[in-house]
């Protein structure tokens, strides 16, 4: 077991009214449990605003959850100072959606890559060592090695995403969180990146948490899919099961839209109650009930 999160909750408060006298509360992540085993890719799907990215940021502790525990590689990282988190942070990395804003325009590619070593300065203490590692990851993501003194704006979207992936790999992380990492790319580049991710996974023994609203891409990469809706995981099962026997009405709606480009008209309102839990429906197919 690489990552186990339990009862994670996160709410955001919003002040409304002219003087901010009213507070409204949005439950972005509501009582989420999730287990990720080593080498098991999980796809997290759901519509925008359902809390996917918030959950990813909580796992990385870029955001602090209101309650619940996160156990990563045997260490509880939901509590504790920045120093304590260092070890865990080295082993989990994130690739962001927009390769145009995730690379600093004033950094050349060498600076970008060097930044990836920040948490591993002790081990990667000489420049030649780091260079060697950079070149190795570049060849793994099919980038040429003579780009070090160039700047992000000189690259296309697909190349930038490769650079972002290379940066996340230099410290040999165990878990890679890909937040809509291929959504902004066109289909041909998308396929290339998806194939690249499959190769990298074998090569570096990576585990992916792949966040996307594109079910077809998720299907290609992940063994398991967690469907998220309004802050809750409503269904969790193997990719095949989700596609062939979806149980939750929201999963069905999502599949109809993604596969047949059809919207479900008379979708009954999906209501949640506090005592709903993910229940095993057999063969590891979990449904929120």
């Amino acid at each position: 077991m690489l990552l186990e999160i339990k009862n994670i909750k996160k709410s955001f408060y919003q002040k409304t009214g002219v003087f901010g006298e009213n507070k409204s509360c949005v439950k972005a992540v509501d009582n989420v449990d999730l287990v990720i085993n080593q080498g098991e890719n999980i796809g997290l799907v759901g519509e925008s605003g359902c809390g996917k990215t918030t959950l990813a940021r909580i796992i990385l502790r870029l955001l602090k959850s209101d309650s619940g525990s996160i156990n990563f590689d045997g260490v509880d990282i939901s509590q504790g100072s920045f120093g304590k988190l260092k070890h865990a942070r080295r082993n989990m990395q994130m690739v962001f959606q927009d390769p145009y804003s995730s690379l600093d325009p004033r950094f050349n590619i060498e600076n970008v890559m060097e930044e990836g070593f920040t948490l591993g300065k002790k081990e990667w203490n000489t420049k030649s060592k780091r260079r060697e590692k950079i070149f190795e990851t570049f060849s793994a993501v099919n980038l040429s090695t003579d780009i070090l003194d160039r700047y992000p704006h000189e690259f296309s979207g697909g190349e930038r995403q490769r650079i972002a992936i290379a940066r996340s790999l230099v410290l040999n992380p165990k878990l890679l969180i890909l937040d809509e990492a291929v959504s902004s790319l066109d289909v041909i580049i998308q396929k290339q990146i998806v194939e690249l991710l499959a190769d990298l996974r074998k090569k570096y023994d990576l585990t992916y948490l792949f966040i996307s609203h594109n079910l077809k891409v998720v299907q290609r990469i992940c063994q398991k899919i967690a469907v998220m809706y309004k802050g809750k995981i409503v269904e969790l099962a193997s990719t095949d099961d989700i596609f062939s026997y979806p149980l939750h009405p929201y999963t069905k709606e999502l599949l109809a839209a993604a596969v047949e480009y059809r919207s479900v008209k008379d979708n009954a309102k999906i209501e949640f109650t506090d005592d709903m839990r993910l229940i095993d429906m057999g063969k590891g197919h979990f449904l929120l009930k």
Binding site: E47, S48, R262, S263
Partner: peptide, 11 residues
Amino acid sequence: LDVTIQAKIIE
């Protein structure tokens, strides 16, 4: 757009 919204726009 999300796939669900996309389906609605297509319709």
